[in-house]
């Protein structure tokens, strides 16, 4: 059924990574991604890869799930590889192909970019695989709070994300109902070319949008009736607090960065 789809790609299992504070996981991912753009040689690459492999092992998320994320961007990866191989200029020519020359430097560059890209995807999908959308939202709200002073509506962003998450199953349900209703009256969504298929979506989208606006209106009223008045003076039931494991994780992150810097300085 359409309503059974899971939002995001959270993989439910009990692991030390899953139980970490979402704020910490967000920061850690951020730090790791920055590191990926700084590292430049084989040693630092190997070290970062090793660290990532270690975290994957601790997270208990099967490799199959992590690979799924890479599969969806395989086209981009191949494209990046080809572009890098063909356009990098170098002295060690390996192969000449009409206008293009494949050089050793090109192959080296392409490998580096592809590995970097894969690590980028794996690390960020590890975040969404081990953190529920709600935890992520809470974490983002908290981390954006300092930017409120310069006009970033952190509470509003988080509230929007929560409501979006809340209404995804409802609207999917509704889409299903509308489709069935249109099919009952002879609408055809399966056959025809791309244009016809796109056209056949109009009778679904129009009622869906109208209903979404009506829902939004009613929800706004219901929220107001429950004294909602924005983020000021609002408290939360679940207050995020750092646990013992979070401090260990912090030490691991710091250790990782320090080691990376040492390797870069020594090599």
């Amino acid at each position: 059924m359409i309503r059974d789809i899971t939002i995001g790609q959270y993989y439910m299992v009990d692991s030390p990574i899953h139980s970490l504070d979402p704020r910490l996981k967000l920061i850690a991912t951020f730090v790791y991604v920055i590191c990926l753009f700084i590292i430049n040689d084989v040693y630092t690459y190997a070290f970062s890869m090793l660290a990532l492999a270690g975290i994957i092992a601790v997270s208990k998320v099967p490799l199959k799930f992590i690979m799924r994320g890479i599969k969806s961007i395989i086209v981009i990866i191949i494209f990046t590889a080809i572009i890098n191989v063909l356009t990098t200029k170098g002295t060690h020519v390996l192969y000449e192909l009409g206008w293009f020359t494949v050089t050793l430097e090109g192959v080296y560059m392409a490998t580096k970019m592809v590995v970097r890209l894969i690590m980028l995807i794996v690390s960020s999908s590890l975040l969404t695989l081990t953190t529920t959308p709600i935890q992520l939202t809470d974490g983002i709200e908290y981390l954006l709070k300092p930017f409120q002073k310069i006009g970033v509506p952190s509470h509003e962003i988080a509230m929007m994300m929560t409501i979006a998450l809340r209404f995804i199953p409802t609207l999917l349900d509704e889409t299903d109902k509308i489709m069935k209703a249109q099919q009952a009256r002879g609408a055809d969504f399966e056959t025809g070319g791309l244009m016809e298929k796109a056209k056949s979506l109009v009778p679904i989208l129009v009622p869906l949008f109208i209903s979404a606006f009506r829902r939004a209106d009613e929800l706004a009223m219901a929220m107001e009736a429950r004294c909602y008045h924005g983020g000021d003076n609002r408290t939360r039931m679940n207050v995020m607090a750092l646990q013992k494991n979070d401090y260990y994780a912090m030490a691991v992150i710091c250790g990782f960065v320090v080691c990376l810097i040492i390797i870069m300085l020594v090599m």
């Binding site: 929560t162 009613e218 929800l219």
Partner: peptide, 8 residues
């Protein structure tokens, strides 16, 4: 459906 705000 239109008065429940949160996902839990």
């Amino acid at each position: 459906d239109n008065q429940i705000v949160a996902t839990i």
